[in-house]
Structure formats: C-alpha cells, structure tokens
Design a protein around this nucleic acid. Sequence first.
DNA 1: CTTTCTGTTAGAAA
DNA 2: ATTTCTAACAGAAA
Length: 285
Amino acid sequence: MPELPEVETIRQDLRAKIIGLKIKNIEVRNQKSVRGETDVFCSVLKGNSIKEIDRIGKLLIFQLAKSGQYMLTHLKMTGQLIYSFRGGRVAGGHSLDKGDGLESSKHTHVIISFSDGSQLQFNDMRKFGYLQLVNSKELEKIKAGYGIEPGKENFSLADLKKVFANRKTNIKAVLLNQKLISGIGNIYADEILFAAKVKPTRIANSLSETEIKKIHKASLEIIKKAIKNRGTTFSNYRDADGQKGNFSRFLQVYERAGLKCLRCSGIIKKIKLAGRGTHFCDCQE
DNA sequence: CTTTCTGTTAGAAA
DNA sequence: ATTTCTAACAGAAA
C-alpha cells in the first residue's frame, strides 16, 4: 500500500473535495472492511459530515462534525479511496453500475454517498484495509502507539538517535517498525538506506554518528520529494482521483534488482530481510 | 498445476 | 522487552 507520501496525497486531495459535504447514505458491501458494528457505523455517518482530515503515519483520520467521533481508514496493501461524481469517472475496475458515471468494481467494499451526488469509494483487492469509528479517547490511545514521523517536530536527529540506541536488529526492520518510526514502508525504507549509503542488514545500534545523520537527512528529503510528486505507483496505488503517483521515476533501488546501480554501476541485489523484499547495492556500507 | 511474490501489520511465538 | 514469523486475502508471475 500507500506509505506516508501516498496517504498524505490522498489526505490533501480529499480535504479539498469532501469537507462539509453531507453524508446521504452508506453502503457496506463487505462487512469485514468495517471494524465494529456495521449498523452503528452507518447510523453515525448518515446525516453527518467531515470536518477535517488528519493523518498519523499511514492512518487517515476523518474528524466528524457531529457525534465527536472519528472515522479511521487504513489502506494496508491495496486499499484505495476514490472520490467521484456524476459525469466523473473512476479509474480501473469494470462497471457494475451502468450509466450514472459512478462506476464501482468487485473490489469496492464501502460506498459513502454525499447529498450533492458525489461519492467516496473504499476499494481493496486484498481486503486487509479497514474503516473504523472511534471516540477521542480511543483515538489518543491509537496515536500514542505511533513512533516519530519524518516531517513532524518529533523527528529531530536526537530523536532518531534515541530510536537506534540499544536496538539489536537490522536497520531496515527499525525503519519499518511503525511503533518506532511511523510512515516509512518497504519502498521508502530501501530508498532512504540507498541514499544514506547504509546497508539494510546493518544492526541499528552499530551505526556511526555520520550514518545516522545521513539516514535522518535522506528520510526528510525523500519523503518530502515523494509527497511533492504525489507518491509512488508500481501496481495498485491510486490517488483520490484514481490517478497514479509520479515518484516511480525517481526510485533508485526499489524494483531495480539485477539492474545497474545509478551511483556506482554495480548490480542492484535483492534479498529477503525483515520478511520483506529488500533492494540494495554493495556501494552501501 | 503448484509455489512464490506483492506497497501492511496484528498477534503469536521464540 | 525485543525480535521474528505467520496469517489475513487476491491475483500475477514463475
């Protein structure tokens, strides 16, 4: 799925489109996509509207105008939030609803319809993602479980050093651990370590001051640049308009196994690390 | 046909 | 307490 830059792109897009729209109807086609009671989920949303959209890590937080609750959305691997309106279109998927311009597919699990005729679809091929209603207390508890995040005040060099200190596992696993650092997923972990010239297999607490500085700098720069380019699409990811992200062409190592390194002309290797496909070049130390 | 892989992460096991 | 492994699911590729 979407990692931080992709989720942030969706957040910004939806913020400009659906804030204040009255929710007219909810259709839940797959119960599993909604955590908690579906009936409660529907009755709370119906007649409500979205006041603000926030994000922590890869989790979207829709603040509701009434009821004081929040609708959380995690897209996991293949989730999509696609906004469309009558006369508009939804990219991908074959039409099940003929004629009205609001196409859905067999992977559309929840449809939120607004009173102006537009709608927000939650699509998810692998069904790992979910929508969930929480109150402010539950939200705070969930937020507290997330680690420091590139671009936020809690991501200073000193904060990052603290995360790496005494950590006896490989740096890749640390970057992917949302409880320690939030928002980075498999693509950006590989890209950050390549930019910082640090091998993903290195043990976190063995990193030198200089190496930590490089990882810190690369994290901020790469995430920022990826947001600016609306994220990375290599298969399923789409923004709120159903469009692909543009960061794919800036990727240095991810999905480049067997190809020539763009820095030293060595060959990019791919191994399994922290349970994930991991790309790197021997010019990383 | 079977096996392995895929942008994630709870939860179990070690 | 930390770290590692697996399952949840669907589909593409080998």
